[in-house]
Design a protein around this nucleic acid. Structure first.
Length: 475
RNA sequence: GACCCUAUCGUCCAGUGGUUAGGACAACGGCCUUUCAAGCCGUGAACACGGGUUCGAAUCCCGUUAGGGUCGCCA
């Protein structure tokens, strides 16, 4: 009853359920014996770990793929570290990655509340059932679950058939379910919530694999068929020594957002950790991943996080994304850097962004790269000045260049380039001797957009003025 | 320590009985060039070890070793 996609009551959740792009109402009904319901159940620690984000991603992909429901549940049983801000970090991280949940905080649903701290009555009810069944006993005020002490079989969608011999209490002690102060322990509430929320597939990190038989014991005793388990490999730190933890570089989703990473690139990279399309492609549109994704394509190997590759992929995304998206990503960064780009108009903004789009790897680079194209107030890089501007003769060359450029009437790429070449040829030196100092003079930096393009965007007058100004500080 | 999982280039991912073991990142070299980059081309780089099974094993089995995980009144 009710175990179909067409729920009896057309609640908010039903309306918001993710519809797989190619799942028609008809095919849905045909495969609807048990609707796919998955969940991401983070603890609000004030930190969203990339491993957690990938777990959320795989759940989200699976739900999308099967036209199911992705539930967000906040496991805040440890009230000491449960804060409003900590929960917000989870929302922000998931939203940033585009992993919208269909049921949970903020969006509601028919299986709430979605905070464990608000579900005491439910846990009491289940506790009573266990108690009545004689499965619990008191241990110094805490409540423990008496293991049936049998072999538990877990048929994992990723790890396969595994048997756990639970007969030895020394190696598999009875788990605690409730502390003397009345607060609940993870294993119990996690199972109860999955039952109550009708979770069909539990997709979670492999660190839970060894805990799974305990969970299955609970399901068995409660007379509930366990969900399908799928334990995905862990994300290890760069050197592969241990799972990535809070301290490790790149372990927080937030560090990517702040570091200039593009969410679609990070999401793409995360897809590739433990899963692959099997055809050697790296950059994949998320909709295509949704289509190709499945549990049996997840490998069982823990993977070390390769920040270099994530960085590379980010550059690929930036270079290939539409200008409108690039602009959208850059604007807040430019604003944060205090660059007043609006006064110069939209066309100028897009010209400038076009100059750096295929070169920068991180959105945060846009400020330093483009500041000289928006204002006269830009910094000069000390080492670049020392190396390229200070050598004797540079000032003279910059003035020569200015006077040469002053005679260029058609201010476009080829004539400007020709001016440099002619000047160098006449002086019997390499064009680089004019080019490098010019770059520093115009942008204060040794690295940046194409020199001639930069000059065009800047306009002749400002170019001449900056050359003159730089000549004054040159050797 | 017990139990569970895993084992292909430095890293990620392909390869499920017959391949010159493939791709990507990184590294290195070259080209281009206007610096850095980008782009293009190229090079080096792996089946942990030992036994089986088989005509034939990276692929299947066993063992060893190594790595990871779990054994909480954390989640």
């Amino acid at each position: 009853m009710g175990a179909t996609y067409a729920t009896p009551r057309r609640g908010k959740a039903a309306a918001q359920r993710i519809a797989g792009p190619r799942i028609s109402a008809n095919s849905r009904r045909m495969s609807s014996r048990s609707p796919v319901r998955v969940r991401f159940a983070p603890s609000p620690t004030g930190f969203l770990h990339v491993g957690g984000a990938r777990t959320a991603l795989f759940n989200w992909l699976f739900a999308r793929k099967h036209g199911g429901t992705f539930v967000l549940r906040v496991e805040d049983t440890d009230q000491s570290r449960n804060t409003e801000e900590a929960v917000q970090v989870i929302y922000d991280g998931l939203q940033w990655l585009g992993l919208e949940w269909n049921e949970g905080p903020l969006v509601g649903g028919d299986h709430g509340p979605y905070f464990q701290s608000q579900r005491h009555a439910i846990y009491e009810r289940y506790l009573k059932r266990l108690l009545d069944g004689g499965h619990l006993y008191d241990d110094a005020g805490a409540t423990r679950f008496r293991s049936p002490r049998q072999t538990v079989v877990v048929d994992d969608a990723v790890c396969g058939h595994i048997e756990f011999d639970m007969s030895n209490p020394a190696t598999h002690p009875d788990m605690t379910i409730r502390r003397p102060d009345g607060s609940w322990i993870f294993h119990f509430v996690n199972v109860v919530d999955d039952i109550e929320m009708k979770i069909s597939h539990v997709i979670r990190g492999e660190d839970h694999l060894s805990n799974t038989p305990k969970h299955v014991e609970l399901y068995n005793v409660l007379g509930v068929k366990p969900p399908v388990f799928a334990h995905i490999p862990l994300i290890l730190k760069r050197d592969g020594k241990g799972k990535m933890s809070k301290r490790d570089e790149g372990s927080s989703v937030n560090s990517y957002r702040e570091g200039g990473y593009v969410p679609e690139a990070v999401r793409n990279y995360l897809c590739l950790l433990g899963w692959s399309p099997k055809d050697n492609r790296e950059k994949l549109d998320i909709e295509e991943v949704v289509q190709l994704f499945d549990l049996d394509k997840i490998n069982r190997r823990n993977a070390a996080f390769d920040l270099d590759k994530c960085f590379w992929l980010n550059g690929q995304y930036i270079a290939q994304m539409p200008m409108s998206r690039f602009r959208e990503l850059c604007v807040p960064v430019l604003q944060a850097d205090g660059i007043l780009f609006e006064a110069l108009g939209e066309a100028h903004l897009e010209n400038v962004l076009g100059l750096v789009k295929e070169k920068i790897k991180l959105i945060t680079e846009v400020g330093p790269w483009t500041r000289p194209l928006f204002t006269e107030d830009f910094p000069f890089d000390d080492t670049a000045v020392e190396k390229t501007l200070k050598p004797a003769g540079t000032a003279a060359r910059l003035r020569e260049l200015a006077s040469k450029l002053n005679r260029v009437t058609d201010w476009s790429h080829d004539p400007i380039e020709a001016a440099f070449k002619e000047l160098a040829a006449a002086a019997g030196v390499k064009p680089a001797l004019y080019i490098h100092p010019a770059r520093i003079a115009l942008s204060g930096r040794a690295v940046g957009p194409g020199l001639y393009q930069m000059m065009i965007v800047l306009g002749k007058d400002r170019v001449l003025a900056r050359l003159e100004k730089a000549a004054a500080m040159a050797g």
